[in-house]
Design a protein around this nucleic acid. Structure first.
Lengths: 143, 143
DNA sequence: TCAGTCGTAACCATAGTTGTTACAGCTACT
DNA sequence: AGTAGCTGTAACAACTATGGTTACGACTGA
């Protein structure tokens, strides 16, 4: 499985913005966030654009521009972030339709789909149990 | 996330071998399985090679060669198959180490790792709850 | 000996992710 | 007005994972 870090980086960016705002700043720039994440500002802007479409952040343009949270850290769960940045499911069915003449080929699709539904539900339940406020608290606790 | 069908195809192949053996045949060939899955025999052999390393199937070479289950369908869970064919975790941490001078950059790695551990545990618990015997039963029920 | 199959290497195509450069558009500030 | 600074997005390259295909040596029952 292609392990991807989109959820990690998105959570990092949002947590960073939250802490920065808590310290009295109105907006955070993609360059500041990129420095903390250790990546390119465009990567951050691309990710924040998806989070913006999902209603998790707002952006301000022009001079003094930047990003701000659309709601508090306590009101954003990792599931919200996951939904915003992960396009597809973890597991997929066959790429090409299996042989419909074969009993297994004909029937296994729905069976696996049901299993994958349960897996996704469990995964989402876990992610829903952690808010970015929890993340920030644990981050500060470890410092 | 790159949705992959390795788990689906592996479960399909094993279930097919199990049913084929139950009908009185000793071994199944990669070509027969590939026909049911609707893919190339080499894809099946590559996947079964991984399942063989994991001790789920055995192969016989020479004339009359093919594949057979190493143990019954009821003794193989989807978690066993998942472990055999999925190399890495679902989520990854940062590709490049975040800024250690930043509180968030320094502390968020372990926090996210803990969350991902819980997610993987939940995912594995779900997969462990279904055996290939369950899969075959549901496949036959739907027919 | 030979036919059939495994085991595996090699190569290509496709797709997703990440990093990078570039540039148009917007707006507070001077 | 003009400008500086940042967003928003396109374009491209590099890398990785997956899947499809061809090829061929290795093995073994008949």
């Amino acid at each position: 499985m292609s392990a991807n870090s989109r959820l990690t980086v998105a959570a990092h960016a949002l947590t960073w913005i939250g802490l920065y705002q808590r310290r009295g700043h109105e907006v955070a720039t993609s360059e500041q966030i990129a420095t903390s994440v250790n990546t390119n500002p465009v990567v951050i802007r691309r990710l924040l654009a998806e989070l913006s479409k999902a209603g998790l952040v707002d952006s301000r343009r022009g001079a003094g521009a930047g990003w701000m949270l659309a709601r508090g850290l306590a009101a954003i769960t990792l599931l919200d972030v996951y939904r915003a940045v992960e396009p597809g499911p973890v597991f997929a069915l066959h790429r090409a339709t299996p042989d419909p003449e074969c009993v297994v080929g004909h029937g296994i699709g729905p069976v696996m789909a049901a299993v994958y539904d349960d897996v996704e539900t469990a995964l989402r339940r876990e992610l829903a149990g952690t808010t970015l406020e929890d993340v920030l608290r644990d981050v500060l606790k470890a410092a």
